[in-house]
Amino acid sequence: MEIDLSSYRLVRFLQFAIASVAFVGLVTRNVGVLINGSFALGVTFLPGVLKRDYRLSLSPTLTLWITVAVFLHAIGMLGLYDEVWWWDHLTHLLSATLVAGVGYATARAFDEHSDAVYFPPRFMFVYALLFTLAAGVIWEVLEFTARASAGFIGVKPVLIQYGLSDTILDLIFDAAGAVLVALFGTTLLAETVETLLARLSRERD
C-alpha cells in the first residue's frame, strides 16, 4: 500500500505541475504550451476513465509511467526541447514505451483469450517494434503538418519538428522504446494483460 500511495501522490503532484504548464501557456498566450499542457493533463486522467467506464484497471506503476511521460513532454514545450539537445530523444523513448506497451498488452490479451490466436515470442517482438514504428511515423506526419500549417497561418507551431535528421532520430528512439518493452515489459504489463483478458472474458459471457 505504501508504494501505491506514494505513486498516487506523485501522480497528483505531476498533474498539478502539468496544469501549471497549461496555465503558463494561457497567461503568456503561447498556444503551443497551452494545447500541449492541456492535452497532457487530459491524458493523466485516462487511467481513471478506463477504470470507471470500462473496468480496465491499470497498475499504479503504469499510471505513474504514463504521467511522467506526458509531464516531460509538457515541460519540454517551455523551452527544454530547444535548449536541451537530448530532451526530444528522452520524450520519444518514453512515449514509444507506452505505445509499445499498449500494443503488446492488447495482443497478448487476445493471444491468451482465444485458442484460435497464437503469437509466438518472436512474433511479439517484431509486432511491438512495427506497431510502435507505425505510430511513430503517424506522429512525425502530424508534427510536420502542424509545423507547416502554423507557418502558413503565421502562428507558433503546436508541435515541434526540426527536419529529416530529427525525424530519423525520433524513429530510432521509438524503436529503442519498443525493444525495451519487448525485452523487459512482460512483468510490468502482466496486470494490464490480466485486466484486458478479464474484460474480453466478460464480453464473451
Rank of each mutant, 00 (worst) to 15 (best):
T192C: 04
T186H: 14
T192N: 02
E191I: 05
G163A: 06
T167P: 02
A190D: 07
G185M: 09
E191G: 03
G163P: 01
S165H: 01
S201R: 09
F184Y: 08
L200A: 13
T167D: 03
L164D: 09
I172L: 11
P157M: 14
A182Q: 05
R199K: 06
E194D: 11
A190H: 14
D174P: 02
R202P: 06
P157E: 10
G177C: 03
T167N: 05
V155N: 14
D166H: 15
Y162G: 07
L188M: 12
G185I: 12
T192V: 04
G185L: 12
R202D: 12
T186L: 11
A175M: 06
V158I: 10
G185C: 14
I168H: 05
F184T: 07
L188W: 08
F173L: 09
D174K: 04
V193W: 00
L189C: 15
E194I: 03
F173A: 02
T167Q: 04
L189M: 08
A178S: 11
Q161M: 08
L188E: 08
D170R: 04
A182M: 08
V155A: 11
L180N: 02
G185H: 09
G177Y: 00
E191M: 06
R204W: 14
L180H: 02
L196D: 00
V158E: 09
Y162L: 15
R199I: 00
R199N: 02
S201F: 08
A178I: 06
L180S: 04
L164C: 07
L197G: 03
E191P: 00
A178C: 13
L196G: 00
I168G: 04
T186N: 10
S165R: 03
G163Y: 03
L171D: 13
S201T: 11
E191L: 10
L197C: 03
P157V: 14
F173H: 01
G177L: 03
L200S: 06
A182H: 07
A178Y: 01
T195K: 00
A190E: 09
K156W: 15
Y162W: 15
E203T: 15
L171S: 10
T192R: 00
G185W: 08
R204E: 14
T195G: 03
T167H: 05
V193M: 01
F173P: 01
G185E: 12
Q161G: 13
E194H: 07
A182G: 10
L183S: 07
L196V: 01
V158M: 13
A190S: 10
G177A: 07
F173V: 05
D205T: 12
V158L: 15
L169I: 11
A198G: 07
L171N: 06
F184H: 10
T167L: 05
D166W: 05
F184N: 08
A182S: 14
Y162E: 15
E191W: 01
I160V: 11
S201C: 04
L197D: 02
A178H: 06
V193E: 02
G163H: 05
T186V: 13
